[in-house]
Amino acid sequence: MKVAVIRFPGSNCDQDAFHSLNDDLGVSAEYVWHQDNSLSGYEGVFLPGGFSYGDYLRCGAMAAQSTIMQEVRRFASEGKLVIGACNGFQVLCETHLLPGALLLNEQQKFICQDVYLRRESSHGPFLANVPDVISLPIAHGEGRYIADDETLKRLNGEGLVAFRYCDGAGNLTSDSNINGSVESIAGILSQNGNVLGLMPHPERATKALLGGVDGRTILGAFQLALSKV
């Protein structure tokens, strides 16, 4: 059983996800092309970062209309694991697998740096082994999460906020809210907890050589899920 790394034209973290899963986590991963229509044989999906279709419309909007995303919708509805990081998170929102949207960062600039994240929930398999505070890299221009009040209420009420940007001690401050997201939200879960979208890049933090391994605590969910199959 394997994880499908979806490749859209313009994805540029697809190879990183592929190598992180295969080389660092020992999870068998394969590329699946955006024009493919089947995920049969896969137990998990990784929607990678990048600029799918150039992101010339809204980020992720074109990818949401691709053939493979129809199948990802069905796949997710079966309760199988789907993670979207960065552009993958944007695609999940545009596909309405997750609520809300991602806007241009508050400071109007692309930001690449390490950030601290506070885990806000223990719902679902992705967060099961994540410590209270982790550090992951971000690299995005459009990562300011926004949702209407009703959605926020529901996300908070049902434990579907996965991560918030925080400082090293886990405090939420205006400085730590790196891109101006509403309520410092960095990542959210679907109702069943099987779909996780987040702006930070767990696949960039799975070996010490690159400066961090906290991404393993999230992506390790694939190891567990695959071992059960």
């Binding site: 540029n12 190879q15 990183d16 190598h19 692309f110 930001i111 690449c112 690159l210």
Partner: peptide, 16 residues
């Protein structure tokens, strides 16, 4: 300036 550049994509950057 440099934090506006993605210095880590391709996950091979060991000293950014």
């Amino acid at each position: 300036i440099f934090r506006q550049y993605d210095s880590q994509v391709q996950t091979q950057t060991s000293l950014p």
